[in-house]
């Protein structure tokens, strides 16, 4: 009998010592005009709260730099667009530099200098009306990426009518920077979803992270399993408004100046979240052959869903499904 008690006690002690990391989650709704979800496996609530604090703090800092409507004191995209001089944060300089590079890589499909056109769409969305076509065209005359000057760690806009908009790249870039900080802070297993830009690190105790890809008409189209990769979807169903029964979504084609209509959604899997974010927006506005060539250049895996619901995939995409 004594032995039996000893065995039971030992069993409980052994099981207790091997503390299984538990799943914790936090949601932030005041960043990047979207919802951010941070999920991590940690040995204690205190450990999770520490990581969540680091995660929120870093995202908030980057949000203030890239938010073009920011009223914060920090020098960022809003101050730059307003023509103010100031100490340019390294991240603003770096993402502007990357944006210029993306413009040439995507044949202009991704243009961070499209701010004047996008702000017109933004104002019209708020009012529930459509932009005036002449006004759109006149604003498109102030989107020349060549007028962004990078000098001595500063960004300068040569055309006072132009403005930068980091909406297509800031979430992915910020998720990447934040994930790097979390890893350096001791995080071992987490997934961060900044408005559809998912970045994963490590695995769950039960295996890889599972990311459902929404079907444009509802339900889940497919699920991808990742551990360390980034997954981003650009879709016409994510953000939209309606005028006279017609839906207008938020991804504006740089050539037509209207919502891109080639695809319902484009999902990209790569190792870098900034790259995945930029690629998904660019591919959303590109025909299949051009998009495929661009994806191959980056070694990205892609899923395209066309307006008739048909799916196209790069060869390696199905390895994740």
């Amino acid at each position: 009998m004594k032995r039996l008690i000893a065995v039971l006690a030992a069993a409980v002690i052994f099981a207790g010592c091997a503390a299984r990391p538990e799943r914790y989650g936090a949601v932030y709704t005041d960043l990047f005009d979207t919802v951010t979800e941070f999920t991590a496996y940690c040995s204690s609530r205190e450990e999770f709260d520490r990581l969540s604090g680091i995660c929120y703090g870093e995202l908030k800092r980057l949000h203030e730099i890239f938010d073009i409507y920011s009223e914060s004191e920090t020098y960022g995209a809003a101050s730059l667009n307003a023509g103010k001089e100031g100490d340019c944060p390294a991240e603003l300089y770096e993402l502007t530099e990357q944006g210029i590079n993306w413009h040439s890589l995507t044949g202009g499909r991704l243009n961070i200098a499209l701010g004047s056109v996008l702000s017109l769409w933004h104002d019209c969305r708020e009012k529930g009306i459509l932009p005036d076509p002449d006004e759109l065209r006149s604003r498109a005359g102030h989107c020349d990426i060549g007028k962004i000057k990078l000098e001595g760690g500063r960004v300068r806009l040569e055309d006072p009518e132009m403005s930068l908009d980091f909406g297509a790249v800031a979430k992915g870039y910020s998720a990447q920077k934040t994930a790097e900080l979390l890893i350096n802070s001791g995080a071992e297993s987490f997934a961060l979803n900044v408005g559809g830009n998912v970045i994963t690190y490590g695995e769950k105790p039960s295996g890889k992270w599972e990311i459902g890809i929404e079907s444009p008409d509802g339900g889940i189209f497919t699920t991808v399993k990742v551990a360390g990769e980034c997954v981003v979807t650009s879709g016409d169903y994510q953000r939209w408004y309606e005028v006279d029964g017609v839906r207008y979504h938020h991804i504006i084609d740089t050539e037509t100046l209207y919502p891109a209509a080639l695809w319902r959604s484009v999902t990209v899997i790569t190792d870098d979240s900034a790259e995945a974010d930029a690629l998904s927006t660019a591919l959303f506005c590109m025909p299949y052959d051009d998009g495929r060539a661009l994806a191959e250049k980056f070694g990205a895996e892609v899923l395209w869903i066309s307006p008739d619901g048909e799916a196209k995939r790069t060869e390696g995409f199905s390895d994740y499904e």
């Binding site: 919802v35 599972e210 459902g212 890809i213």
Partner: peptide
């Protein structure tokens, strides 16, 4: 109804999410 799916009301800061089993996130 499926795990990972969510509805969000940004202006009110409200999120509703299906959890437990299946996908971690749906994007």
């Amino acid at each position: 109804s499926r795990s990972g799916e969510a509805i969000v009301c940004l202006p009110n800061g409200v999120s509703v999410k299906i959890t437990g089993g299946g996908a971690d996130f749906v994007i």
